[in-house]
C-alpha cells in the first residue's frame, strides 16, 4: 500500500535534487556541518578508481566532469545571484568558493566579446597536495566551473584544466571557452 503521507517525498536518491542533500545541521547536531578534506578525497578517488576499473579512465573522467557540471549548475542556482552584473557575479563566486572551502578562485583574464576566460583555483579541494603524476586530475572541477558559467551566462562552456597541482604546479589553471 502506498504511504499517502510520503507521496511528495523523493522516491530515490539516485536522481539529484538539492533538497535531497538534507538538513545537515539537524542531522549532524554534534559532529557539525564540516568534515576533513581527507574524507572528501577518500570518497572521490575511490569512486574514480571504481569507475575507471569499470569504464576506463577516459569514461571515468568524463563521468566526473558530468557530475561536476551538475554540481556547479545546482550550486549556482541555489547559492549565487544569477542576475548580478558580471563583476558582482565574479566577486560573489570567489567568496562563495572560499566560504565553502572549495578553493581560492582568481581570475586571470576575461574577454567580454568572446566570453573566453582563464582562472586559477588555489588550494583546490580536489587536488592540492596530491602526488605529482604529470596529469591534470581536476575533471570534476572542469565540469563544476562549466556548470556555474553556463548557469550564469546561459551559454555552454567548455572548461579544460591547463595546469594542475598533480602536474607540478601550485595552482590549478582553467581555460573556459564558449562552445
Amino acid at each position: 500500500m502506498d504511504n499517502v503521507f510520503k507521496s511528495n517525498e523523493p522516491v530515490t536518491h539516485n536522481v539529484f535534487r538539492w533538497e535531497n542533500l538534507g538538513d545537515i545541521k539537524e542531522g549532524r547536531g554534534d559532529l557539525g556541518e564540516e568534515m576533513p578534506v581527507l574524507v572528501y578525497r577518500l570518497m572521490q578517488f575511490t569512486m574514480l578508481d571504481v569507475l575507471t576499473k569499470n569504464y576506463g579512465s577516459d569514461q571515468a573522467n568524463q563521468l566526473f566532469r558530468d557530475a561536476g557540471y551538475l554540481a556547479g549548475t545546482e550550486l549556482a542556482r541555489q547559492s549565487l545571484d544569477l542576475t548580478a552584473d558580471l563583476d558582482s557575479f565574479i566577486a560573489q563566486l570567489q567568496k562563495t568558493l572560499e566560504d565553502l572551502k572549495i578553493g581560492i578562485l582568481r581570475m586571470e583574464a576575461f574577454d567580454p566579446e568572446s566570453g573566453e576566460l582563464v582562472l586559477t583555483v588555489g588550494q583546490d579541494l580536489d587536488c592540492s597536495g596530491l602526488p605529482i603524476t604529470n596529469e591534470t586530475v581536476c575533471d570534476y572541477d572542469e565540469g563544476f566551473i562549466a556548470g556555474i558559467l553556463e548557469a550564469y551566462t546561459g551559454k555552454h562552456y567548455k572548461v579544460r584544466e591547463i595546469d594542475c597541482w598533480a602536474s607540478g604546479d601550485r595552482v590549478c589553471r582553467f581555460k573556459g571557452v564558449v562552445e
Binding site: 582568481r106 581570475m107 586571470e108 582563464v118 586559477t120 588555489g122 595546469d163 604546479d169 601550485r170 589553471r173
Partner: peptide, 9 residues
C-alpha cells in the same frame, strides 16, 4: 608559476 599566477590575477 604560482607567483606568475598571482601576478596575472
Amino acid at each position: 608559476k604560482s607567483l606568475q599566477a598571482t601576478l596575472k590575477h
